[in-house]
Structure formats: C-alpha cells, structure tokens
C-alpha cells in the first residue's frame, strides 16, 4: 500500500480581496506503507494544506491523492466515511482540537461509535485499551481536557486518532505546543505506536530536529512546492537546494555554544502566495540565483535515485 500524491494544486479564492491564494502549486510525493515522510517548511509553504488534503478535509483544485490505488476523499459521502477511518489527523494544539465539555473517554468512544468499529457493549473496553496504548490510566477516562497536562492532552488526541484504526496518521506539528521535557515522551510514544501498529506517518513540522528524529524520507517545501526530497540522512547531511541549506543553517543548535554565524543570514521573507514570483519562488532570496531562475519554474529532478532537487544550478 502506498500513498501517491500526484501534481496536486490547491487554490483558495478570496472574494473580498479578489485574489487567489496559491497554497499548493504542483506537489507530487509517494509514501510507502510503514514509512514516515517528514515535511518541513515555514509558514505559507503549504504543509498544513497538504495535511488537510491527505485526510480529506478539503479537495485538491487539481491533481490526485491515492491510497493503495484508490482515490482519497472524492467527496462521496459514504466514500468519505470509509476514508476517514483510513487516514487520521493529529493537530498541533490538543486544547483546541479536543471538545472542552466532553470527557476524554466519551471523546474517544464517539469515534468508535460513529464508525461502528465495535459492538455497543465493547466500546468502553476499547476506550480503556486505547488509553492504555498511549499511556493514560483507565481512571482518567472521566476527566475533562482542562484537567490534563499538555502532554496528556496530546496523548488523548493520538488515542482518538487511533480509535478509527487508521493506516495513515498525519501529524501536524504534534509536539510544537508542548514543553521541552514532555516532547521527548510524546516523540517516543509516536515511534512506538508506528512500530506496534505498522502505521504510515506524515510528520509535519518546522522543527528540523524532530523531523530528523522520526522521518525515513524528508520533503522540504517552499511556497507550495517541494524543493528537495530524499532520505532523511541525505537531505539533512548533504542538503543541495539553497533554501534547504539556509533552513538548516538558521537553526540555533544547543550543541554549538556561541557557534551560530550571525553574519551570513538568509535575508528577505517568503513571498505572498497570492502573488507568486515568476520563475523559481526562491529566486529573490537565493544566494546562487542566475537571471534564468526568474524565468522558469525549476522541476524536481533526480540528483541520485533517492534524492531530488528543484534547482538547475545545483544539478549542473
């Protein structure tokens, strides 16, 4: 089973401003079952839009998304239902993604009942099982989200996603809102769950250290396109695209005390997705841009069999 994303674009028209926001501009990716694809990029690169398309919360403007050959989320009511049980999404902030007036047990039970995954009298046993899988004690099932710590709330959100018995879990910044000391716990849990249930992950984050920790493959996105893709060790230890390089250099590492270089800083900001620059979206900020970069959008081409880069200058 494979997730295949082919030439996906997503445009949002904003009527009041008479503009079109180009959130995704032709993304193609594949993820094999049991693998983790890490997606990194900054605000506006389209990573969360991609997450919403994969779980079927929204439809692509163009292109297709397939899971083991069958189209994902074509909008047919029944089709959508079964789709929801195959892919689930875990959001960044469990405080806003959990219903504050529902106990955590009821919140998980609702998923099981909606998809009729267990007989009525087995639902509670299943809730307790799911809670124990994510490390939450049985006696906490009657608590409300505000009675839990941030880490516990995210565990509940993960249990709720697992309740639908998905094949694919989309994790959109799952540890970014958590305190440093509980992040490691939740990351370890995610790694364990993946092995235990043979899950496929799409792990979206701006935090490269977390992406590096969990991903098999990494896609770097910039303004609605994948600019570099490959195995995690290739992309992070020998980045080729000038944006990937700048992104990695920008991260202040705790292992390099006073080691950061404040002189060579990537200047400028990400352009407005409603007003895409001509040619390569990165050309105005790029240290190695040539005039041709402002003419033609670079294709994502193979550098080696498992390392693709959308930059003709580094492929030369």
């Amino acid at each position: 089973m494979t997730l295949t994303i082919r030439d996906v674009t997503k445009k949002y028209s904003i009527k009041s401003r008479k503009t079109v926001v180009n959130a995704l501009n032709g993304v193609s990716l594949t993820v094999e079952k049991g693998k983790t694809l890490g997606i990194v990029g900054e605000s506006g690169c389209g990573k969360s839009t991609l997450a919403r398309l994969i779980v079927g919360l929204e439809q692509p403007t163009e292109g297709s998304l397939n899971w083991s050959g069958a189209p994902l989320g074509q909008g047919v009511r029944n089709g959508l239902r079964s789709h929801h049980t195959k892919t689930q999404l875990v959001f960044q902030d469990p405080y806003s993604s959990l219903n504050p007036r529902q106990t955590i047990g009821a919140c998980i039970a609702e998923v099981i009942k909606t998809h009729k995954l267990r007989a009525e009298d087995q639902v509670n046993a299943r809730v307790i099982e799911l809670l124990s899988v994510v490390g939450i004690a049985e006696d906490m099932q009657n608590r409300f989200p505000h009675q839990l710590s941030g880490g516990q709330r995210q565990r509940v959100a993960i249990a709720r996603a697992l309740a639908a018995e998905p094949d694919l879990l989309v994790l959109d910044e799952p540890v970014s809102a958590l305190d440093v000391s509980v992040r490691a716990d939740v990351m370890n849990l995610l790694v364990d769950l993946k092995n235990q249930f043979n899950l496929t992950y799409i792990f979206i984050s701006h935090d490269l250290s977390m992406v590096r920790h969990i991903s098999d493959d990494i896609a770097v996105m910039y303004l609605g396109r994948v600019v570099e893709y490959g195995s995690w060790s290739e992309v992070l230890s020998s980045p080729k695209h000038p944006y990937t390089k700048a992104l990695i250099q920008s991260i202040p590492e705790h292992t390099t005390v006073r080691g950061i270089d404040f002189e060579n800083v990537l200047e400028g900001e990400v352009p407005d997705p409603a007003n895409l620059p001509k040619g390569c979206a990165f050309n105005q900020r790029c240290p190695i841009a040539v005039p041709a970069c402002a003419e033609k959008v670079p294709e994502l081409l193979e550098l080696t069999s498992h390392h693709l880069v959308a930059c003709p200058e580094v492929l030369k």
């Binding site: 701006h206 490269l208 992104l247 991260i251 404040f262 002189e263 800083v265 990537l266």
Partner: peptide, 11 residues
C-alpha cells in the same frame, strides 16, 4: 516566528 526569520531577528 519561522526559523529563517528567527535567525534574522537574533542577528
């Protein structure tokens, strides 16, 4: 802030 912007502000 995004990481490349954070870097600009830190600098």
């Amino acid at each position: 802030l995004d990481v490349t912007i954070q870097r600009q502000i830190l600098a």
